[in-house]
Design a protein around this nucleic acid. Structure first.
Lengths: 341, 341
DNA sequence: TTGTATGCGTTATCAA
DNA sequence: TTGATAACGCATACAA
């Protein structure tokens, strides 16, 4: 009767000697069916090894039970922490989370989003390669619940959750100046990445406001935000003439900072005595570094959690209004900028 | 006519003035429809913003286009690298990848697997909390394509892809002995984790084979495989009387090694001069540490890729036979065990 | 409290 | 080359 097919409600109904509707009720409104028949149905289910077909459920019910996050860079633990926050919120709402990774490639991102649309996910959380890409507008117009994570989008076509990156850059450099540094390196790139642009901007702003000479804030551009680029920046730093060489560095993210630290220690530079270092994100590996890294902390899991809540609100609340949530970054001072007295 | 509904094939057909079957053909067998009508249909699709409903497709076609990976510990980059390998294989096969994280909790793992079954994923890749759990057998009996990743399962009820952890432990300790160490610490736990148990076992085996006194191989158990536990082990190590204190340590994974390194450097211990360190996994952060870590390399992405290929074979090839793939680990020597001459 | 009937959006078979 | 139609497995409105 089953011929190796996976059993359906119909089979369960037959086995339990009830109608198909009753089986459905056992799953979706158990309170409406008598204890006796419910038990019979449940036994039939487990005997047959019945597993509800989610596609059919979704097709009929018109609503899926999954959220999706398209992350920007799977090699950066920061995004996994954000994903973890989303996952927790999804778990609370009894939803599954689909995690995709664009690896900073717009084409891959588009493929993922297209698939997610086909899956009719309840909502899409995304850290886009390019937040101003027009197809995001189209998504929003289509009515697909969507939240931009770790970026703000011009206009108010959708919700977004981010950290004030300009402020983050400011507090990082302010901290270094407070520690007595008067020549500071700013490391990061490419500036096409919004997060980078704003963090550097914050650094320059505060430097100017404090009345320090522009030439003493040395910008070392990088090609991306990786440990390898951090090492490379360290080499360039070491190559500067001693009188111009900064005594402290602000890196646009922790991976760069880790690379800088590694290169420095390998070259016999003492951190923080010869070179103080501030990173950004405060990933777990920052605190775990040989010289624990001072970093600008983003509430990574909170970011994800808040984004998930916004997308769920958009998906379920008819009175939903788009919001731009901005979290305040926080400096976590550790050994890499400590002043020895 | 649409009233805010998302458009279906029916709507596209109406807009293009063709039948519903023709629209389906445009999507699935474009070669069978004339260029003229195909173009008309395609225009109608983009004008309406039609997106195929994957649930309906799957319900009808009976086959999903997704793979799933249930990872053991999202805080360990190792598993993300494995996932990346799976993702690449999935991309090649034009499949999506569903990533779940059990966080080492059996209950959470069960919830995930249950959901994946409901989704009728094509195959499940899993690094299980307990590879001997009976419900895995049940999955296999049910005929759900499944591959165990980073573990081997007794019997041959399913495929598995792993690294020879015993051998890994052997080459790690052998390397330390070759470097001249005669008192070595072995750090890791809990032994309920198979990977840990076997790595430690390999360490003990080679130690005995080399004819070294058992007492000179000091076991420092940990509660889990985290950076924090690595630090804690470092403190215990430092607390040993100098004459008994090991001059080298083999850690059951890189997170422990990173923690040990951090604690050591913070306490003024020179690595490798006072203490040599070998980790396991060779995650990217091992090479990026202040003192680059020697580590037993697992082919992380290859592991994932191979697992994905096996599960796809099981899903599509009627002559599939279960295999236990075992990769050979490889020692990557770096500064943390270098001998100064 | 339970049963019956209908349709969700798609693919595939068959006829035209 | 195109059109009509029958499933796929489930949820739900309504009847009993």
């Amino acid at each position: 009767m089953l011929n190796g097919r996976t059993p359906s409600v119909k089979d369960v109904a037959a086995a339990a000697g009830v109608s198909l509707g009753t089986v459905s009720n056992v799953m979706n409104r158990p309170e409406v069916v008598s204890a006796r028949t419910r038990e019979r149905v449940e036994r039939a289910m487990s005997e047959l090894g019945f597993v509800r077909n989610e596609s059919a459920r979704q097709l009929r019910a018109g609503t899926s039970r999954t959220l999706a996050y398209v992350m920007l860079d799977g090699t950066n633990p920061f995004f996994h922490d954000v994903a973890q926050g989303i996952e927790m919120a999804a778990e609370d709402a009894d939803l599954s989370l689909f995690i995709c990774n664009s690896n900073s490639r717009a084409a891959r991102e588009a493929v993922h989003v297209d698939r997610l649309l086909q899956q009719r996910v309840q909502g899409i959380l995304i850290t886009p390669v390019d937040p101003s890409a027009s197809y995001l507008d189209e998504l929003a117009r289509r009515g697909v619940p969507m939240v931009i994570v770790d970026r703000v989008r011009d206009g108010e076509s959708c919700c977004s959750v981010a950290v004030d990156d300009v402020l983050g850059g400011r507090i990082a450099v302010e901290h270094l100046v407070e520690q007595g540094h008067t020549r500071v390196a700013v490391i990061g790139g490419p500036e096409s990445i919004g997060q980078v642009r704003e963090r550097l901007q914050g650094a320059r702003e505060i430097w100017a406001e404090l009345g320090l000479p522009p030439d003493d804030l040395v910008y070392l551009p990088t090609e991306n935000l990786t440990v390898a680029e951090g090492r490379s920046a360290g080499e360039r730093l070491a190559g500067l003439p001693a009188r111009r060489r900064p005594t402290a560095a602000f890196c646009a993210n922790d991976l760069l900072a880790l690379g800088l630290l590694q290169q420095g220690i390998g070259a016999g530079i003492r951190v923080p005595d010869d070179l103080a270092i501030v990173g950004f994100d405060d990933i777990d590996f920052a605190a775990a570094a040989a010289v624990p890294l001072t970093s600008v902390r983003q509430p990574r899991q909170e970011l994800g959690r808040a984004a998930a809540q916004l997308v769920l609100d958009e998906a379920t609340n008819p009175d939903h209004r788009h919001q731009q949530l901005s979290f305040t970054p926080e400096l976590v001072a550790r050994a890499s900028t400590a002043v020895r007295r």
